[in-house]
């Protein structure tokens, strides 16, 4: 441990870092909605159920990406709690 950083002055950089994890979430949301939208449209065209799977795809994509966000938030929170618990030993 010759040159560790200072033990987290816990000022700007680390909190910016914590927030920065979510900087790309919007793109993920848009991306997954689009993916499922196109998948739904493809299915629709194949079996001729015009707007059904497209709409389903939009909502699936939305729900899935929100669930993914929720999961990563929870994971971060758990890790943070672990770190806090580990920090106060």
């Amino acid at each position: 441990m010759s040159n560790n950083p200072r033990p987290s002055s816990d000022s700007d950089p680390s909190s910016i870092g914590a927030a920065a994890k979510y900087a790309g979430l919007g793109f993920q949301l848009v991306g997954s909605i689009l993916l499922f939208l196109y998948a739904g449209r493809w299915v629709d065209r194949r079996i001729g159920t015009e707007p059904l799977f497209l709409l389903l795809g939009v909502f699936t994509g939305l729900a899935a990406s929100i669930y993914s966000m929720y999961r990563s938030l929870m994971a971060d929170q758990r890790r943070e709690a672990e770190r806090q618990g580990g920090g106060t030993r």
Partner: peptide, 21 residues
């Protein structure tokens, strides 16, 4: 089937957002 594409998109959108930003 539903979540794996979302995870992959999440993985890809990070560098994508970097590049675009």
């Amino acid at each position: 089937l539903i979540m794996s594409p979302v995870e992959m998109i999440g993985k890809l959108t990070k560098p994508f957002a970097l590049a675009i930003r």
